[in-house]
Design a protein around this nucleic acid. Structure first.
Lengths: 223, 223
DNA sequence: TAGATTGTTAATCGATTAACAATC
DNA sequence: TAGATTGTTAATCGATTAACAATC
């Protein structure tokens, strides 16, 4: 069992493994090979074995991986076996949508508080949560042990919100605003801005008229 | 000016450069160095220069990059200087939210049609768009020249929607559903599922009790 | 001219893949 | 036993970073 230096690329694949394993479990599949997984997830089987081997010897030679056991292990690695409270700032459409997705989230990971800077939003209901004022953020984060913050405010306000999250003691931030946040190095930030994705997709569109960039059709590797 | 094999990593950084350059332009900054950009965007200046140099000699030695000119160039590279029509399937909260973000999108990239499989959603209004039935997808994609499809339906329906997008002739897909889509190799798919992000964030949380995984605190490189 | 900054080559670093002995 | 499949080492591939001549 290795310990040190697990790369972000590896960690980002774990939820993808987990998600598919849960589906297999639901279909009552008992065992799965790295071959099978690779096929389904479009990944190299050796990579999957290597990823998992960073954390333990989860498989059995000649057999594969026990689906339930592997789920349990990955859930532990990702700390999804403990309660993780999430707070969200920005009670707009997107914030609303994410709160609803909450249902899809793991039982242990849930959005427990929603905040907004607009006075007219404060007090309104989202599912079973009442939108709170930003003034309540700091105390609420501490009181409810909120460890992850989600930011769904417009870009110009995102940095300020991040600062407040950090101040309040959040450990990680998922940022939907299209800005690069400046935070202390011990805070983990993941960018979830969909415009970046969408704009980079446009690059791969075929040239409208066949006149230039012919080379792209051949060189670009569609995955 | 290089041509071949521009990696996905490079393409994904272009929208980030663009975004910051637009901000600079708004602040009437005329010129920017790779140094400055790197500082703001948390990237290595050499990497920025190399990224840009794949597409042309946009900078001036001793001076830096002309902000307006570089914006123009990146917009061209990303094809944001042409009209790109986008279609969206799944008129739920998330779909709604993305349609609203449309305002933030580039003028030339816009969501021009929304579809939903639920009969009770069909006919309702989202901004200035009327939600259409799935039966209309194929014809509408062709009629309106929709080139990018966005999927915001529940996971079990996502593959079917993708199939229909592909059949209709869409060139790229932005998928918010937590599944790996199977599409022909000439179709580009970007995953935009936020649960993956959120789950991988949980990995980086501190251990609740100080008993195990001490190594993480030291080895993990927070970016 | 002196200082700044590019574009680019070479060096480094890290991640993916292939290959295979171990073993179920 | 024969076939399948892991965990792991070694080879490959690709991306990032450092360094520097060219030049504004």
């Amino acid at each position: 069992m290795k310990t040190l230096k697990i790369s972000e690329a590896v960690v980002r694949r774990l939820p993808i493994y987990l998600r598919h394993l849960m589906e297999l479990k639901q279909r009552e599949v008992l065992t799965v090979s790295s071959q099978d997984l690779g096929q389904k997830l479009d990944l190299n089987p050796a990579q999957i074995r290597k990823d998992l081997a960073y954390f333990g010897d989860f498989g059995r030679k000649g057999i594969g991986y026990d689906v339930s056991y592997l789920i349990e292990q990955i859930r532990h690695i990702l700390k999804l076996d403990q309660e993780v409270h999430v707070g969200l700032v920005g009670a707009g459409k997107l914030g609303h949508a994410l709160c609803n997705y909450s249902v899809y989230l793991n039982d242990n990971m849930k959005i427990v508080a929603v905040f907004d800077a607009m006075p007219n939003k404060v007090g309104s209901q989202i599912n079973n949560l009442t939108v709170m004022a930003m003034d309540d953020l700091r105390d609420t984060v501490r009181r409810l042990n909120i460890r992850i913050g989600i930011i769904t405010v417009p870009a110009p306000e995102a940095q300020h919100v991040a600062d407040q999250f950090v101040e309040a003691g959040v450990e990680a931030i998922l940022n939907f605003a299209p800005v690069i946040l400046k935070v202390p190095s011990h805070i983990r930030v993941h960018a979830a801005d969909f415009t970046t994705d969408l704009f980079s997709l446009a690059y791969y569109l075929q040239e409208e008229d066949g006149k230039e960039k012919v080379e792209n059709g051949e060189t670009v590797n569609h995955s």
